[in-house]
Amino acid sequence: MNLTLRIWRQAGPDAAGSMTTYHVSGISPDMSFLEMLDTLNEELITRGDQPVAFDHDCREGICGACGMVINGQAHGPERTTTCQLHMRHFRDGDTIDVEPWRAAAFPVVKDLVVDRSAFDRIIGSGGYITAPTGSAPDAHATPVPKEAADTAFEHAECIGCGACVAACPNGSAMLFTSAKVVHLNVLPQGAPERASRVRNMVTAMDAEGFGGCTNTGECATACPKGIPLPSIAAMNREFLRAARG
């Protein structure tokens, strides 16, 4: 395959950036999107140009490091992570636009690399169960209804990639935050901190400069792990419950 790529290049956090055009040839349909970028980068390095910087690590869709907006869609046309997107979903001769996640809370570090530490701070504000090492009772001391365990798991699958924020027209982090709130709040182990958790996490989320939720549903459509949109409603319910005291 031969492709034209238009990629956002930005030398550093304070530098101005622009879309730059590249041509790549000999792309195999079996390549992942990142392997296609590897191919481009090998060429760029050999020419003495700076390769395109992008975050990636596990390349099997679980670490959440990779993420770019491809033709206007977070992680591209398939509902998966960028590392699991394969070139067979494109056609020979295509022009592909590649941009970083765009959000005030995710400033660009370089090229396609953004700073997602806001997510870590949201988790630090309450996305945990206080259980210092050694303090735990036997694992079977508290049975957890299977339904609650399954709901918790479904929400715990979030990989923190930030596609929800990138896809949301408002740059909102509601889906990310709700995934953690729901995961921990449905479990009996999470009950003692149920109210403070949702209050603190929502406060932290707002303080990071994420936008508000207008329920466009773009986040859930882009989520590679299928965190469902009603999670946001569940978090709102928890928030109102906490507000009532």
Partner: peptide
């Protein structure tokens, strides 16, 4: 207020424009 906050949360726009969400949602 929500609109102001939402616009501030995405200061740089995407170069590749794409139709998002349903018509009803986009026209709120």
């Amino acid at each position: 207020q929500l609109s102001r906050r939402d616009l501030a949360a995405r200061p740089s726009k995407y170069a590749h424009k794409r139709r998002r969400a349903s018509y009803a949602t986009r026209t709120m």
